[in-house]
Simulated assay, not measured.
Amino acid sequence: MLQMVVTGLLCGALLGFVMQRGRFCLTGGFRDMYIAKDNRMFYALLIAIAVQSIGVFALIQFGLIEFSAGAFSWVATIIGSFIFGIGIVFAGGCATGTWYRAGEGLLGSWIALFGYMFMSAVMRTGVLAPIDQSMKSVQFATNSIAETTGISVWVFIIVFVGIVLWVIIRELKKPKVAIPAMKPKRSGLSHLLFEKRWHPFFTAVLVGLIAILAWPLSEATGRMYGLGITTPSANILQYLVTSDMKFVNWGVFLVLGIFLGSFIAAKASKEFRFRMPDAKTGITSFIGGNLMGFGASLAGGCSIGNGLVMTAMMTWQGWISLLFIILGTWTSSYFVFIRPYAKKKNAVVAEKTVIT
């Protein structure tokens, strides 16, 4: 039990610290791909996937950890991922982003987090569990891309890493936008950790390394998986309601550690403060959290469980889920950001035409 608490909290705190300082927000990244045509955060995700894939399959190769891709519940993955993508825009952050932003004192994220935990629990052991199980029963027997094609997983990893390296080099060669440099208020390690802006690619490497670390630490306690947010989040609420210790595992301390690590990073960088949302934002955040919980439970993972981990494991579930999370984010962004802006712009133009 002590090992579970210590290693889970430590791994989660590292992840929360890095994500908070590096502003590793996949919701903003997916949204910016569509609205701002900025792909940097998506490229950062690909880096984290590549780093983790190399490390985890090396551990598997040496017999240090075990992994089974299982079956592929394709209908549940597609529908759930799309709904999850819609939800993260309303919630203002993905599953991990909601945890680390809650650690910054953003009360809207607390509201979204409760909705996320609540609906995840309802989908797993509540009244919606039969729907969840029924949709997941429609599946293909093989989830592993390597097993389906009969090609070694290392071929896919090498090709993927090559593509990622090409993308990185191409991106780094682009002319940099000059940003006025502010005089540092700190020096040395303190400046690097808590003041200097972290490059998303550097942050991604750290996230990938932490994702590798999560596998042996988790499996040492009997939980045969790496980073995961949805099930542990549901487990916290289920434990609080039932006091049943079966819901307490390494993943629970991982997500609590994310909150702790983000809080430490935010306090040390003077970015922590309680921020109360207005009523409309609070309601929207709660709705978004519920959509996140429903979608992630149905899809078998969130932007971390599917978008970072199952992609690194070269599974159909991971890559198809990532695609539909992005599509869901873009769809939601259109109705939340693009369409209202277009209507407002057209109204202003119409008003000016009437005046003239």
Results as ranks from 00 to 15, higher is better:
G305P: 06
F202I: 10
M19C: 12
E351H: 10
G16S: 03
I229A: 08
K173E: 13
V153G: 14
S73G: 15
M123G: 02
S134R: 10
M310H: 12
V252R: 04
S134C: 04
K267F: 10
Q61E: 12
W316M: 15
K136I: 01
G305N: 08
F202V: 13
I88V: 14
M310N: 14
S137C: 04
Y341C: 05
P180R: 02
I86D: 04
R124S: 12
W319Q: 09
L260D: 10
I212W: 00
T77H: 05
M135P: 01
M135G: 04
F67S: 07
R273H: 14
A279P: 05
T7C: 11
L59A: 11
N306M: 06
T203G: 02
L254I: 10
L165I: 15
F160G: 11
V5P: 07
T230K: 08
L206P: 01
L217K: 00
Q317G: 05
G115N: 03
A102V: 04
F337K: 09
V161M: 08
G305M: 06
S137V: 07
P232N: 05
L323S: 08
F194N: 02
A95Y: 00
F30K: 05
L298V: 05
S134V: 04
F201S: 01
A36F: 14
Y334K: 12
S81Y: 01
I325D: 07
A204G: 02
G208A: 03
T98Q: 01
R101S: 13
M4C: 13
I54T: 11
G251E: 05
V205S: 04
I111T: 01
L323C: 15
N143S: 09
K343R: 13
M224C: 05
G63V: 13
I326F: 13
A220D: 07
W74H: 13
A58G: 08
S243W: 13
N290K: 04
G126Y: 00
F259Q: 14
G288F: 11
L323M: 15
K183P: 00
G257M: 09
F118Q: 07
S109F: 13
I210W: 01
I168F: 14
G12P: 06
V336A: 08
F286W: 09
F247D: 03
C94I: 03
D278L: 07
A141K: 13
F140Q: 06
A296G: 07
P200A: 05
G126I: 00
G63K: 10
G318P: 01
L327I: 12
L322K: 09
S68W: 07
I283Y: 06
A121T: 06
